[in-house]
């Protein structure tokens, strides 16, 4: 007998002592029709953009607002300069980036490499509840850019910031997105594994900066 059959038979035999199989299927259907639990007040705040910014900063990210995507190259160049980083950025094939005039910034398109001083991704959504950026993997925004950049820049449309996780999942479904990977990112990488002292930049980015458009 295969491992699967052995496990499932044992499980089914035990569970059958309670409700029958049909009742279990009905219970599952009922749950799937109305999933989820209570939505806490932190996920119901009216000013989602304000709450997002406040909480992202609390999670050690930095945030700035720009009026439109056209302002991104200038804002990014300034951030790089302020951080003493080279005027170069690695990003994916997102149409938003393709249409921009990057001016003096050296840009390259592709996945993350072993040394990436600065990377840029466009987040699909933001969640105000915890100041979280939500990224969808693919050619537009390769997943490795999120983790290999020493400093990771994320650009996010204010209109894509949702109050809570539930709203964000609903928006993801509505947009018909089924990426291989959904990355929820809340602040830069960190670890307390050495001496239980929290330090930023364990394996992933040392810094996370979010540009909120609009």
């Amino acid at each position: 007998m295969s491992g699967r059959d052995e496990i499932m038979q044992k499980l089914t035999r035990t569970l059958d002592q309670g409700d029958g199989r049909a009742a279990r299927q009905a219970a599952v259907r009922a749950h799937m029709a109305k999933p989820g639990g209570p939505v806490p007040s932190i996920a119901r705040e009216e000013d989602a953009v304000g709450a997002f910014i406040e909480r992202a900063i609390k999670a050690d990210a930095t945030v700035s607002r720009i009026a439109s995507a056209d302002d991104l190259p200038k804002a990014l160049a300034e951030e790089l300069r302020n951080r003493n980083l080279p005027a170069a950025i690695r990003h994916g094939a997102d149409p938003m980036f393709a249409g921009l005039d990057w001016g003096g910034l050296e840009t390259s398109v592709g996945i993350g490499r072993i040394e990436e001083p600065a990377t840029l991704s466009r987040a699909e959504f933001g969640v105000a509840e915890t100041g979280t950026c939500v990224l969808a993997s693919g050619a537009d925004n390769p997943v490795t850019l999120t983790f290999l950049g020493e400093t990771h820049f994320v650009v996010l449309d204010a209109g894509d910031i949702h109050k809570g996780y539930e709203d964000m999942w609903a928006a993801l479904r509505a947009r018909g997105l089924t990426p291989r990977t959904v990355n929820m990112v809340t602040g830069p990488s960190r670890s307390a594994d050495i001496g239980q002292q929290l330090q930023l930049g364990a394996h992933g980015p040392v810094a996370l900066h979010v540009f909120v458009i609009g």
Binding site: I42, R55, K58, A59, G92, G110, I111, G112, E129, T130, T132, S137, G138, A139, P142, V143, T144, F147, T178, R180, T181, V182, N183, M184, V185, T186, G187, P188, S189, R190, A192, G204
Partner: peptide
């Protein structure tokens, strides 16, 4: 666990890289 509101990385993964995926 750590008293964070949310851990830094929460990643949802499904299957291998798709035809159009450059990584994964």
């Amino acid at each position: 666990a750590t008293g964070q509101d949310m851990s830094v990385y929460t990643t949802f993964s499904s299957g291998p890289r798709r035809a159009t995926d450059p990584d994964g």
